[in-house]
Design a protein around this nucleic acid. Structure first.
Lengths: 337, 337
DNA sequence: CTGAAAGCGCTTACAG
DNA sequence: CTGAAAGCGCTTACAG
């Protein structure tokens, strides 16, 4: 292994100078810079990140805490994670995945090891025990999602209000007046604090009230089968529905197939608009779903950015609420006349 | 931060003794063991992994190299990755995700940093430039997948031969004689060396020849839309087909919807058997797909296991070929009489 | 602008 | 069975 000492010797300088150059932490004359760079090139020097971490007390490793037991690691998550990993790498950070429970116990254990400089929290609950653990241990962190009590926490999240507003406005413009929401299963103890479902449902109720329209919400867990059942229940109880909003990525696929089974033409008889979905999943449906695209890459990157700014003592990234954007598909049209 | 020195002082021993106890690397009398353990508990000591890494020249960090640009990070990948991360954590390793290209350039760059003890390679190509990089740098590694030249490389993979044999046998028993394969798109330069598609197609040809049956292969890229088109082409060219094997996870969903569009009853008119799929994707189809389950968790864990054994100097894990197992669904039945 | 030296928190021969 | 000490490869006051 080529060390900094080897480079310093060959360049005829001290290791301190090599370090100053590498970190751009003190000025170095062009002449010595050239000698050091030549020596590094000759020897193929690569700085050892572990030694650097120990000496600088900064590992440049970030953990993404993902509650894999409670949440399926699906396509959306994959988008968050790979975008985050790439953004981290651009800034010379590494990203580790910590599949830890929501209660914070394992998280505390791992933090004690001193491996990471900070943590990005995914699948944030309204009251999230992990936040307390991170605070107690003094670990810098950023949320992808939001707790209820935010007081100054760095976070990025979907702008549920704007997203739902856009969705309802779009359907309303087309002429729809009877809009139902198939939401998440808030009765499930794992999810009753789950932000995306709580917030999208609240936003739906608020926006519908503003439009003076009736409110119908059908709970549904996150599987196509549950989606089918929810759609069947919905049409039984509210046969006059002309457009269905689905805040449930995998449930949405079941909604479409249930309607087809029931002989409904999509979108001639009934429109389906999927909220919060990635294109890969929308394409799995036939007809392909019209949907609001979860800004997964953006949020993954912003989450990393928010954390890295803290780590580097830069100006904090203001909270970012990113709306999902409408993507055309084949499941939304005007209501039947 | 509580250090080993603090523990040693409180227990009245040297830091070496604390280290010996912690690593179980030298015997310690019960009395001093008790004192040290008490001190650790009192102080809430947690060993610093970075210092340990530098001193021991072992970071206990493993990278999973994933060519995110070339391959979608989908549900199957997520299963591999989370299972690997969990298995690593059980053995006190951490898993980082390296989204690096297939050419090995970025991989070499990252290896130089000395962060990881070893690498698990995903989405292995028949001739994989990354293998050469790992060899040159002397990095321990394990493959999830297989190159053509394996000479002794640690690897775990799907047993494509056994999987395809089981699939064909199952359909043959039901009475099918006209089986077609919708495979991957080997014409695409990104995938013409992609093991799963090459191997499943080869196995199909071999097995069909053994049964004395005609061979039909329709290439298809990994999207539902491509699957729809492939199914349409197939029925055009070979209308007598009674069962379709699909070696293409997302393509399979398109195959089902194309058949429905064409008015074919599944499975009364035509059976669809998806090879290499995870249950979450199978459930997205309506009717739910009959499929051979990709052993993602098993392979993720075995890949980590194979690597860790090398890292710890244990007996090497013999190559593991794990067959996909048949999962009942609603898309396979006897051929029309 | 550059260098000598202490120190990050551990592991590991070596000695007893 | 235990300890003193060197060393892992860097960073960072401090001094000049």
């Amino acid at each position: 292994m080529v060390t900094m000492r080897d480079v310093a010797e060959r360049a005829g300088v001290s290791i301190a100078t090599v370090s100053f150059l590498l970190n751009d932490t003190k000025p170095v004359t062009p002449a010595t810079r050239a000698r050091i760079e030549q020596a590094m090139a000759d020897l193929g020097y690569r700085r050892n990140v572990v030694a650097r971490a120990l000496a600088s007390r900064r590992t440049r490793i970030i953990a993404m805490a993902y509650p894999a037991l409670e949440h399926r690691f699906g396509m959306s998550t994959a988008e968050f994670f790979t975008a985050a990993a790439e953004r981290a790498r651009e800034q010379e950070y590494h990203l580790v995945l910590w599949p830890v429970g929501n209660d914070g116990v394992e998280l505390r254990e791992l933090l004690g090891q001193g491996l990471v400089d900070g943590v990005v929290l995914m699948e944030v609950q309204l009251a999230d025990p992990r936040v307390e653990v991170l605070r107690e241990t003094g670990t810098p962190f950023a949320l992808i999602g939001r707790t209820t009590e935010l007081d100054g926490l760095a976070h990025v999240d979907i702008d549920f209000d704007a997203t739902i507003e856009a969705a309802v406005a779009h359907l309303h413009e087309l002429g729809h007046r009877s809009l139902a929401l198939i939401s998440g299963d808030l009765a499930d103890p794992r999810f009753h604090e789950y932000g995306p479902w709580v917030r999208s449902e609240a936003a739906y109720r608020r926006v519908m009230a503003e439009y003076g329209l009736r409110t119908v919400v059908e709970p549904c867990s996150d599987t196509p089968r549950a989606g089918r059942e929810a759609a069947e229940r919905l049409l039984q109880e509210h046969p006059d529905t002309t457009a269905i909003l689905v805040a449930n990525e995998y449930g949405a696929l079941g909604v479409v197939s249930a309607l087809k089974r029931l002989g409904r033409d999509i979108p001639a008889d009934l429109s389906v608009l999927s909220l919060l979905m990635v294109p890969e999943v929308a394409a799995l449906s036939d007809p392909e779903l019209t949907f609001l695209r979860t800004p997964g890459s953006e949020l993954g990157q912003l989450g990393i950015e928010a954390l890295i700014r803290q780590l580097e003592g830069a100006a904090p990234l203001p909270p970012q609420l990113v709306p999902a954007t409408l993507q055309p598909g084949d499941t939304v049209g005007p209501p039947p006349s």
